[in-house]
Write a protein that binds this DNA or RNA. Sequence first.
DNA 1: CTTTGATGTAAAAGCCCTTTACATGAGTCA
DNA 2: TGACTCATGTAAAGGGCTTTTACATCAAAG
Lengths: 212, 212
Amino acid sequence: MARPSSYHHGNLKEVLLEAARKLIEEHGAFGFSLTEAARLAGVSPAAPYRHFKDRDALLAEVARNGFERFAACLDTAWNNGVPTPLSAFENLGKAYLAFAREEPASYTVMFETGLAPGTEGETLPAAERAFEVLQQAAEALCRSLPEDERPPLKLVSLHLWTMAHGVATLFSKGGRAARKVPMTPEEVLESGLLIYLKGLGILPDAKEDGSG
Amino acid sequence: MARPSSYHHGNLKEVLLEAARKLIEEHGAFGFSLTEAARLAGVSPAAPYRHFKDRDALLAEVARNGFERFAACLDTAWNNGVPTPLSAFENLGKAYLAFAREEPASYTVMFETGLAPGTEGETLPAAERAFEVLQQAAEALCRSLPEDERPPLKLVSLHLWTMAHGVATLFSKGGRAARKVPMTPEEVLESGLLIYLKGLGILPDAKEDGSG
DNA sequence: CTTTGATGTAAAAGCCCTTTACATGAGTCA
DNA sequence: TGACTCATGTAAAGGGCTTTTACATCAAAG
């Protein structure tokens, strides 16, 4: 498919997205320039316009594309709640943070406001799918509660999302929190979620349990 | 002080910061340009360089400046935990979200990674002060626990920060979460924090209490 | 073999960032 | 009053980026 030395690139769109992620990772979202991405891909500054309407469209595609893989990651990690909802939930949290760490550029463009003003107005289908995985997890976790004690699922999943996103962003890169505490993001998220689940009555209190 | 029609502006630095916040608010962090900020202030494109080393330095100052007001807001809201730690804590959460809503540009530049790569490496004193308010709150809230049940304070304050920051960013602007649930950010944060505090054993379980 | 459409290039207009040399004016000191 | 000085602003220019337009290349289809 890819013909590096021919006049036609053959795989430019993908290569440009890759270059964009690399540049954003290295120089921040501001440091990204279409021209430099084109340079990395070995084409002229005008070439990207055959594949993207403009620079914002490329960023939007990085986001869309990122949400696809993100949703897939979360879905795989959750694995329909097997073997147990709790262990699957732990995997889910780790997968969330792993994605944010391994694809910081994607995560940044996906979630950080103020990057592409027009773009973030629409909610992407893949973003919905990612959120639905969290909602499935919330549902499975809450199923052990008597019905009259169950808080709204959307609310619980928002709480989960909130904690995961908060840890992911506060700890990302040289993030503000990274040097404040000698713990990994995973430990912070997991401990926070455990406390939250205790508060919901899904996990027993430590003093009652004694094993944890 | 300000002489709008004279050769020397008299108040340019402040006006530029204000203009930057306004532009970022309207067009996103990408939409901000030093030249346009200068235009808004009624000066030439080179004038800002008498007050800021470069464009990144202006953004860094927006962040620094924002953290100062942010820390002051949080400190005022917390009010040393009076009348009660719990009510003060509620105020603290509201103040956090209020700041993010009222100064979205500041909040964006303060917390979003990938904006000024070099800048976020250093931790600002004002940012430390803001975090210390959260830590004070965590300490006051945990004081009612027996010592052997108290989790590390830094960890608890990180959890609190995580939830507040998560809600603030997920709900900001046309944020991804805003249309997902018919609740205000304040309601999402407060309910999440209540559940978390229950999990810590600071608040009684709903079924034991019964009063909501 | 020619045509055609997708894909890439070159060139140019316009904006932005930043530097450099120069202009202005307020305050100081004689 | 008058000259000096320093902070602050301007004008002009170089270089980069974005985007458009006209043209070039090449693969595939007829």
